[in-house]
Design a protein around this nucleic acid. Sequence first.
DNA 1: AGTATACATGAGCAAATACTCAACTGTAGA
DNA 2: TCTACAGTTGAGTATTTGCTCATGTATACT
Lengths: 304, 304
Amino acid sequence: MSLPSLNSLRTFESAARLKSFSRAATELFVSPSAVSHQIRQLEARLGVALFIRLDRQVVLSAAGQRYYPQVKLGIDTLLEASSQLAEELTGTVQEIKMSVVPFFATRWLLPKLSGFRKSQPDWQLKVQTSTSASDFNSQDFDLVIRRGIGPWKGMIAKKLCRERLVAVCQPKMYLDIQQVTDILDQPLLFNAKVMTEWREWFVSQGLGFNDPVVSFDFQNTSQILDACIAGTGVALIDPILITEELAQGKLRKIFDHSVPSLRDYFIVYPDQCQHQQNILFFEQWLFKQLALDPLMSDRCALTK
Amino acid sequence: MSLPSLNSLRTFESAARLKSFSRAATELFVSPSAVSHQIRQLEARLGVALFIRLDRQVVLSAAGQRYYPQVKLGIDTLLEASSQLAEELTGTVQEIKMSVVPFFATRWLLPKLSGFRKSQPDWQLKVQTSTSASDFNSQDFDLVIRRGIGPWKGMIAKKLCRERLVAVCQPKMYLDIQQVTDILDQPLLFNAKVMTEWREWFVSQGLGFNDPVVSFDFQNTSQILDACIAGTGVALIDPILITEELAQGKLRKIFDHSVPSLRDYFIVYPDQCQHQQNILFFEQWLFKQLALDPLMSDRCALTK
DNA sequence: AGTATACATGAGCAAATACTCAACTGTAGA
DNA sequence: TCTACAGTTGAGTATTTGCTCATGTATACT
């Protein structure tokens, strides 16, 4: 069964509620003639008289009386649906669901989120640590924070900060390393997902890179960190994320000079969500925190 | 807030339910391109992405997930509303509310209605006896049965039967009347709403009519009948409605010859309801009962 | 009789809608 | 490499929608 136009249904609802075509016309900002036409058209489509016309008045027919409550409910439901979406746009929705690369989440973002919660107590935050690529397209998340090169198809990716990597190791191992190339004599700790990372690091300093004598692969940065503290080998890590370990002397930077990585941290969300206010609001807060963090401020690029 | 078109909402609902634009296209008998356009248009109007596009698949976005249940409810509600009206047209509604002129109701219709109830046990019948003109335009009634001349503006009026009137009186009074003009020597019983009735009766027989020496006005036929039986005067009544009193000898027809009245019995309902099946069904039954009644069958005109 | 009120109707026009078609993009699988 | 699948995009076209305007009808009131 083909549905009538929403406009004619709205006109019917207004006339029925107000019991008057002319008052409906006023409410809808059209002429009485337009209302009359709309109602007639609707009646013609339905094949039923919805109103009984008196001389200077209309009353709902028996059929119109049965129709009205359902039409009103249907229209109100659709109006409410659209209105709620509009509220998301205008910032009324106070919920954000994100998937964040684990180390960044635990070492940088989550500590900052307590501040967000303090300033926005009504917001619901849902953070899931993950590196899964399927999160980009999952309806369970409004946004994704990832470390990578970008871009991601159909996605808006805004760089949060540059990644800079330093070689770190346990203090004991540090004594055996006098220059950069000595590092290759030690076991190297790799991230299994970014096997090219060490080579990139050497090449970016104009140094050749041969496969190490010994190497270990780990699934994530946290495991690399543990192994490094245990003296298993040398790791490449962004010093910003291990400030405590460095401060406690558990690890030492082999050289103070950090090298820009080919990977950065991005906030990523679908193109189509670029006007979604809850996302934009959170993003804004995020960039602000980066600017306020003294360790981050020289690494931020406010470009897309 | 301006609402999107119902068509685009239906397209969204179908695609969301089927999780596929092409399957939605098949369901809606349009091309996938049309679905794509509709969804895009809807997203543009709402300013929100409703779907996340994968390579060969779409999934609902977070916003789309929130929107879908409400849109589905709204659309289903409107569909149900229209479908119920269609059922009235096709005869599924089994309810009829009528306002009937009292004497006809009690003397002819109500006794017949028991037969209707037997043959249509699921039907709900609501009968109100009334002569009120406002019932014609009241939403409380699907139809009205009246005695009158017709037509009624904006109404379909179908004649149920011709009214024929005879002069009747109590058997004692009957002995004093030898010819028609002797009636004028007796008190005449009038219906206050139809004061011209007696004159019409005499004129239709080519006789003059002078104001009677004594006359009494009553509000309805039932009161006229009671007064007549009590010997108060001579009444003009349709013999079909007093078959029992005649049979029991409580009243006598002064002459066997009945004169056609200027008034008939009509079934009346609004023009706009002429296709309403519950009305048409009941009307059909009504005409059938008239045809089956031997006292009525020579009075029926099956014309509009 | 004149004015106000309220709904009806037909004609006309601009805008919006609802597609199709052709071509494109990007996998996935044989 | 080719084919199938699935969604995208722009252009074009026919149809529908959504009015306004002018006029009509029928009270109700002054």
